[in-house]
Structures are given as C-alpha cells and as structure tokens.
Amino acid sequence: MNTTANKSDDEICEIVSFSVGAQEFGIDIQSVREIRGWTEETVLPRSPHYVRGVINLRGAVLPIVDLAARLEMGPSEPSARNVIIVTQINDQLVGLLVQSVSDILSVNKSQIQPTPDVASDLAKNFVRGVLPSENGMLSLIEIKDILPVELGEAA
C-alpha cells in the first residue's frame, strides 16, 4: 500500500500511537474523535468474532471492534485499564479496543515508509505504512475496512 499521495510529502500529520498486544500501531488523528476508557459491551448476536458488541457513547450506540482480534492476534480480555479509540469511518463511528494509547506524534509524511511486502493479507489490508519509532516499528492502521462490508440490510 502506498502512502497517501494527495498531500505533498512535506506535510506534517499527527499520529495517535497505541499498543495492541506487544505491537505498536498508529492512526491519523483526523480520524480520531475521542479516547475513552473501556466499559463492558452489550453483545450483538451473530456478529463477527472481532466485534465485541456495542456501548453507549453519550446516547449513541457505538460498535466496538477488538483490534487484536481483527488482526488475528487473539481476542482481548479487556479491563478498565484498556482504552477505546473512537474513530470515524465515513459516516459511522466505530470504537477500537486497544491496550493503551501512548502518544501523539508529529510525523513528516516523507518519514512514512510503504508497508513491507510480507505474506500476510491482513497486514496488507490494514497497514498503510510503517514508521520507525522509539520502540522499534509503528504500523499505521487503515481503518476503512475495519467493519466488514457485508453488514447491511439482510434481504
């Protein structure tokens, strides 16, 4: 996946960095609406394994995606210490369950390297680029397809 080409390479973007499992990830701050603590979800019947359910976000119903499960890293067992990153995908709000949020980084677009050509489909689908970071490597998350497209009106 290429880095986004619609801005000049000199532009700075801000990345919220967070951890899932032992790995470090990042998401463009423009997609992030808020960050809050984890609360127990209401289970949605017959939902994909990575959709934990929904919670009440100030009166709105917010679906929660277990990012670790989505990336096939095994389901999370969250506690109050976990964090939900509320993101906006098109018109929908989706909460991403992660372990913890580390920092907000100012990153020059030119620093973002294309996703290494690994064998994993998941990596290719969800990682839009990588960054060298303090702890090693940070993978930038592509959230567009976090929720499966097939969800919609059943005939």
Partner: peptide, 18 residues
C-alpha cells in the same frame, strides 16, 4: 436507537436502546 445506522442489520434484532 437505530442499530443499522451505527452498525448494520442483525436478523432478529430491530434496534437498540439505552
């Protein structure tokens, strides 16, 4: 609260409430 808008349709579930 519509579930379809925030998530999608689930057979057997009409909507959600708080």
């Amino acid at each position: 609260k519509s579930l379809e808008v925030s998530y999608g349709h689930i057979p057997g579930v009409a909507a959600a409430t708080i």
